[in-house]
Amino acid sequence: MFDSRVEIIPANGIAAMVSRHLPTSTTLTITCLPAHGIERTMAAALELADLGYAVVPHLAARAVADKGQLRNLLADCATAGITEVFTISGDAPRAAGPYASSTPLMADIAELSAGSMKMGVAGYPEGHPATHGVQLLDELLAKQELASRVVTQMCFSAEAINNYAGLLRREGVRLPVWAGVAGAVPRTKLLALAGKIGVGTSLRFLSTKGSFARHMLGGERYQPDALIDGLAPTHIAGLHLYSFNSLAALPAALGPATAHAG
């Protein structure tokens, strides 16, 4: 059984929704989307931390205005007992300040927290449309001294995730790999929201798989069980569950692992 975390979007009323459906033993990661901004991410993180959840806010480099704002964000995390963040470049077309990518952001987080803040980083089993695969690998190798884990982009192929984790090991990336998996999400919501959070590539991959695609997306709700069963415990350290805020079905989809704080 894999440890798991649940990714949520900081929509209005998300704290009440989470508390209705998930026990406080659940570890939550909170997205930072351009439409919401880093302020909403942190507001949700602080509210959920106050309710007793372990939370991992996403810090999008391009959303951080300057080092002073970053210092304040980390101070808020420290006050709330938040010990880990997830660092990404972000999807904003322009950087709000000096951080165009997650690499300098991570360096400043390490400096300002005196090395105490854990940092997750993104991995791409199916590549990234804007960055060459060799560059992605080089960036991971450069980041791993500051990072605590790799969380993969949402993927619908256990084989692709396992192969990616194996590749990272062969190339010298020692970080634990957490598989990014869609939860038991309504099909229409998955298709409508996927592009907004950057998983269009993975859905296009799925659409090429013929009968497999019809099986996985043909019903009213996507079910991740078969994909999870195909993940290799020797390669994968845990599950990062993309919930799209469809929280009620998570325990049915994953069983006790959903409530395990990873």
Rank of each mutant, 00 (worst) to 15 (best):
E139V: 15
M119L: 01
G123S: 09
I161F: 06
H128C: 01
T103D: 15
T201V: 02
E126D: 14
T131R: 15
G166P: 12
F156I: 04
G172D: 05
T103N: 14
V150F: 05
A184Y: 08
A122I: 03
A158S: 13
N162P: 01
H132Q: 15
G166K: 10
Y99M: 03
D138L: 13
A165M: 06
V173D: 07
M119V: 00
Y99T: 04
F205H: 13
S202E: 07
G210L: 03
C155R: 03
R214L: 13
A184H: 14
T188M: 13
G210F: 04
L105A: 06
I109N: 00
A100V: 15
P104E: 09
A182M: 09
C155A: 14
P125R: 01
E126S: 11
P176R: 02
Q144W: 01
E171V: 12
R187Y: 11
R174W: 11
L168F: 03
A147C: 04
G210N: 10
V150P: 00
L146G: 10
I197C: 02
P104C: 04
G115N: 00
G183H: 06
G195P: 05
K143S: 06
N163Y: 08
A192H: 08
A182D: 12
V177T: 04
G200P: 10
A165H: 01
L136N: 05
L141N: 02
A182Q: 04
M119K: 09
K209N: 13
E145G: 15
P176F: 05
E139N: 10
V151F: 09
H215R: 15
P104Q: 00
P104R: 04
G183M: 10
A110V: 06
L206V: 01
G210Y: 06
G200V: 04
Q144P: 10
A158M: 00
E159F: 11
